[in-house]
Every structure is written in C-alpha cells, then in structure tokens.
Amino acid sequence: MFDIMTVFESFVEILKVVPKTLLLALIILVLSFTLGAMITYIQSLNIPVVRQVIGVLQSFLRGTPNVVLLYLVYYSLPLVLAWFLGLFNVTFDPTSLNSTAIVIVTFSICYSVFQSEIIRGALHSLDKDQIEAAQSLGYSTTQVLRKVIIPQVMVEALPDTMNAFLIIIKALSLAFLVTVVDIFAQARLVGAQSFSYLEAFVAAAFVYWGICVLLTYVIDKLENRMRRGYA
C-alpha cells in the first residue's frame, strides 16, 4: 500500500544529500562556464584547424547521450590519466580515481558546449556604442570589461545559465551509474531499504521540483533587480 508517512520519511532522508547534489552541480556549472568561455574565446580567434577540431568536438558532445559519455569517461579517463602521468614517471593506480571526479569531468565537458553558446549569444547582444563611450572617457581594457561588458553580459546570460544549472541537477541523477550518491541515487537506496520504491520516488520527484521552484524564484528576483535599466 502507498504510505504517505513513508513518503515523508523518504523525503527527509533524501534532503540529506541535497547540499551535496547542489554543490556538485555548482562545481560543474562553474567549470563548464569557464570552459565554455574559453571555447567562445578560442572560436572567436578563428584559427583554422583549431576551429574545425572544436567544431567536431562540439558536434560530438551535442550528439551523444550523457549516459554514454559518462561511461566513456568512466572507463577511459583512469587509463588516459595513468598513461599521461606515466610520461612524467608518476605512477598512478587507475582504480583509485574518485567517481565524483569522473562525474565532474564528464558533465563539465559536456555542458561547456552549451555554455559557450550562451556566452556567445550574450556577447552578441551587447552594443558597441557603450564600449566606445567608456573608451572615450579613458576606461582601460580591463575597466571596460569589468564595468561595462561583464555586468551586461551576465544579465543576458543569467536566465540560460540558470536553466543549465537546473538541467545539470537533473542530469546528475545519472551519477548513480558510477556510484555517486545524488538525490536520485539516495531515493533508490532509501526505497531499497524498505521496499517502498514508489514512496521514495514520489519524495524524490518533490525534492527535485522543490529545488526547481525555489531556484526559479530566486533567479527571477535577481534578474528583475539586474534588469532594472532595461526597457
């Protein structure tokens, strides 16, 4: 029988891993954003060969499911690392690599492609006039970047970036495949203990939904604040 009390108990149990899941998602968001910014920058330089290589890589990452990439990295990264470190005569045990690290690496690379698109779009929306105004007043290149470009690009990129954050949180439910315990994995564990899977998954769904509603609310507030000057 479906038991509402069990749902509640599962909910409390699942809440315990929420901070860890959010932290993991945040690390992935920051890394993928940084990587994405680098990709945007490199692509803007328009270096022949490099441009095409990144293009193919982007296409590959876009065209492969996260699960496949996760397994791919899970089985290959330790070997690659062992080989690479071997070049410097550092011995490395491939089995010692932390699964959490694997999840972070996989998703950071995976989402960097999307982040780079977001950044490119935001940069595109910035008008040159304001940059020239700042230059004409004697702002240095870094001052223009810090005072004019970044504040406005951030506002433009904020909704999409936050959307990416929610996607990452949900995508982390795949992490249990490589033994990392996130919200979804915790729900499976809780469900397995009492064989009340349905209750556990109902609880998990509500946890995800709750996070989403809360984040959306906070982001909307933030965006409204930042967008005050916009028509």
């Binding site: 304001q130 004409s136 005050r228 916009y230």
Partner: peptide, 29 residues
C-alpha cells in the same frame, strides 16, 4: 588612455550605459 582622459565625446546616439541610472552614468567615469 592618457589622451582619452583629457577629452570627452558626446555621441550621435548618446551611448549611455543602459544598465545604470542617470546619476550613475555621470558618476561612473
């Protein structure tokens, strides 16, 4: 930078910082 700081420009399209208030626009530089 030195030369630019001794001059100021008024543009055809005003080129105000759109995310800043009137006061902040004048204060920022």
């Amino acid at each position: 930078l030195n030369l630019r700081r001794k001059t100021a420009m008024v543009f055809q399209q005003y080129n105000l910082f759109k995310n800043k208030t009137v006061l902040e626009n004048v204060m920022d530089a």
